[in-house]
Write a protein that binds this DNA or RNA. Structure first.
Lengths: 188, 188
DNA sequence: GATGAATGTAAGCGCATACTAACACCAGTA
DNA sequence: TACTGGTGTTAGTATGCGCTTACATTCATC
């Protein structure tokens, strides 16, 4: 399969797979529905990706790469960077809906998915870690372990997105206040 | 169904459902497997709960109640309370594995599950909110919106648990440092 | 010892799933 | 013209799903 990559067919399948993963979960993203949404015959899906598992793993890898593009590159102005980061991050989670939870849940029992997820997360993590370490070297952040900074800054964004997606009256996160609180706790 | 509640049968079904939800996801938690693990005939499951959806919703409600028991009751010593809270919370998430993500993902397409999840979360949320508001009244925490405090404190715990469950080399969370950072940002 | 509630056993229904086989079409290239 | 690679169409397969029906068994209470 995937002899000469006919890009647009693969693209449409991957995109449809991504959408349906978020909307319907792993088992709900059936090969029929994916093919239908992509405007392609079901058999084409199998011809090009071999199996549902490989298609979905590939789709997750691609979603990870998209996420990566918006990653953290220090500009020199820590506070401005944090604001921009938080905004972009929240927007991505909001657009993703339940997708990350579906994938995290399914990854436990789908080895191909798990590998794709680990790759995607590891890439993101390295970028973010480098971001914080940069500002530690500049002396603007305390020399705490990068893990602490990462969780202190991204954790509240994650929980706001998670509870926002799952619960109607979830408590809101004020980005302004969050950045202030983070700097209060971790600025040098 | 559920005429005279024969507790142990229901209990075993609910427990098995909870385990399988975490291990196999919503669709992977089949009625046959749940019944087998509970040591009960499949038909008994339907006689007592009527449908798979109702059984799983009930199981989620129960998991929420268990979580609730360990909830926050202010002792007067803020720092000690935060430590205890963080420890208990992390332990619960760790034991839960991917269960919360499975539920969050499935809730989007299973209305009964969604209602159960919303109930469980709303209960938890109220307790936690009361905890922070107590210490605000004592003048030990800044008078920020409760949502900001909740996300600032629990967010890092959630992200640590999430990435810990999904990724081998996830960055660790130092609870000690986390509480320090939180107080640095939000203590009055 | 009869009653009735809770459970078990066995068989199966209708349906959707992931995936395959066989064959037809069509565009671009040699 | 002939070939070839990508796709579509149609019709499957085997499997597992949620759920039901009919009948048998256990066991405490009256």
């Amino acid at each position: 399969m995937r002899l000469h990559s006919s890009r647009s067919t693969d693209d449409r399948l991957l995109e449809a797979a991504l959408e349906l993963l978020g909307e319907r979960g792993y088992e709900g993203a059936t090969t029929r529905r994916i093919a239908e949404r992509a405007g392609v015959a079901e058999v084409t899906l199998f011809r090009r990706f071999g199996s549902k598992a490989r298609l979905l793993a590939e789709a997750v890898r691609r979603a990870g790469a998209d996420f990566e593009e918006a990653a953290a590159r220090p500009s020199g102005d820590l506070k401005a960077d944090l604001h921009a980061l938080a905004g972009r991050y929240l927007r991505q989670w909001r657009r993703a809906g339940t997708f990350p939870f579906v994938v995290a849940g399914a990854a436990a029992r789908e080895p191909e998915l798990r590998r794709a997820l680990e790759e995607a997360l590891a890439g993101r993590l390295a970028t973010v870690r480098a971001f914080f370490e940069h500002y530690q070297r500049q002396g603007e952040l305390r020399p705490a372990p990068a893990g602490s900074l990462i969780h202190a800054f991204f954790g509240p964004l994650v929980s706001a997105a998670l509870f926002g997606a799952a619960l109607e009256g979830a408590p809101a996160l004020d980005v302004e206040a969050h950045v202030e609180g983070f700097l209060g706790g971790w600025a040098a």
